[in-house]
Amino acid sequence: MKPAVEWRQPLCSADNEAFAADLHAALARVPKAISPKYFYDEAGSRLFEQICELPEYYPTRTERALIEAHAADMAEQFGPGVQLVEYGAGALRKVRLLLDAIPRDGVQFVPVDISGPHLLAACDALAADYPGLSIQPLVADFTRPHTLPPCPEGSRRVGFFPGSSIGNFTPTEADAFLRLAASELAGGGLLIGIDLVKDEATLHAAYNDAAGVTAAFNLNLLHRARRELGADFPPDGFEHLAFYNPAYRRIEMHLRATRALELRVGGEAYAFHEGETLHTEHSHKYTVAGFQALAARAGFSPGKVWTDANGWFAVLWLEARPGE
Rank of each mutant, 00 (worst) to 15 (best):
K2S: 11
P3F: 01
C12P: 00
N16D: 15
A18C: 07
H24D: 13
A28F: 05
K32Q: 10
I34Y: 00
F39Q: 01
Y40L: 08
Q50I: 01
C52A: 14
P55Y: 11
Y57P: 03
P59N: 14
T60I: 08
A72C: 09
A75C: 14
E76N: 14
E76S: 14
Y87R: 02
G88W: 00
G88S: 08
K94I: 02
R96T: 14
L98M: 09
L98E: 02
L98G: 04
V107H: 03
Q108E: 15
Q108I: 01
F109R: 07
V112K: 03
V112Q: 04
V112P: 03
I114Y: 03
I114S: 05
A121H: 13
C123D: 03
A127Q: 08
P131C: 10
I135D: 04
F142L: 07
H146G: 04
T147A: 15
P152A: 13
R157G: 06
G163Q: 06
G163Y: 03
S164R: 05
N168R: 08
T170W: 06
T172A: 15
E173M: 15
D175G: 12
L185K: 01
G189D: 11
I194C: 01
L196H: 05
V197G: 01
Y207R: 02
D209T: 06
A210L: 11
A215R: 06
A216I: 01
N220R: 12
R224A: 12
L229F: 06
L229A: 10
L241H: 07
L241I: 05
F243E: 03
F243P: 00
Y244I: 04
P246A: 09
Y248T: 13
R250K: 12
R250Y: 00
A257E: 05
A257W: 02
A260Q: 13
A260N: 12
A260D: 15
G266H: 05
E268H: 13
Y270L: 09
A271G: 03
L278T: 01
L278Y: 00
E281D: 05
E281W: 00
S283D: 09
H284V: 04
V288M: 05
A289Q: 13
F291V: 05
L294M: 15
R297S: 14
R297Y: 02
G299M: 08
F300I: 11
S301W: 05
G303F: 10
K304D: 14
V305I: 14
W306N: 09
A314Q: 05
L316G: 11
W317I: 12
E319I: 04
